[in-house]
């Protein structure tokens, strides 16, 4: 099973990135092999719709689980079309959050924020 986590830096000791769509990297961790990789989030620099594109990237990575502090409505809409489950990250590093998930200590994320697009009136 694969877990995706937004990351500020390409190290496991890094904190989980506070933004999903704008995270510079995603850590993709395979639970069976206990190996993981950092992939770049090409959506991080896009002017709008970062959430949709980031969700596309996560889905394309074949992740089954997403651990994130927050997630927008549009990204949630993308995930709804898949079997992916979303969990809310806790304070601490990426490694801490993977451990917490494995110990069943993370709660399901079911609150999605409205888009920030339009604010500023593009």
């Amino acid at each position: 099973m694969k877990i995706a986590i937004p990351a500020d830096e390409k190290v496991l000791a890094s904190e989980v990135c506070m933004s999903f769509g704008r995270a510079p990297y995603f850590y993709i961790y395979e639970t069976t092999t206990k190996m993981g990789d950092f992939i770049e989030n090409a959506a991080a620099s896009s002017p709008g719709g970062a959430g949709v594109k980031a969700a596309q990237i996560v889905v394309d990575s074949h992740a089954d689980i997403l651990i994130t502090p927050r997630c927008g409505e549009n990204a949630a809409e993308v995930f709804k079309a898949t079997k992916l489950e979303i969990y809310k990250s806790t304070l601490g590093s990426i490694q801490n959050n993977i451990d917490a998930y494995m110990d069943n200590k993370l709660a399901v994320l079911d609150q999605f924020h409205a888009g920030f697009h339009g604010v500023g009136g593009n």
């Binding site: 959506a43 896009s46 809409e77």
Partner: peptide, 15 residues
């Protein structure tokens, strides 16, 4: 370039 489209499991979603 507005990322208004996503292709999920070969299904296109328009935002």
């Amino acid at each position: 370039k507005f990322n208004a489209l996503a292709a999920i499991i070969n299904k296109l979603i328009v935002f």
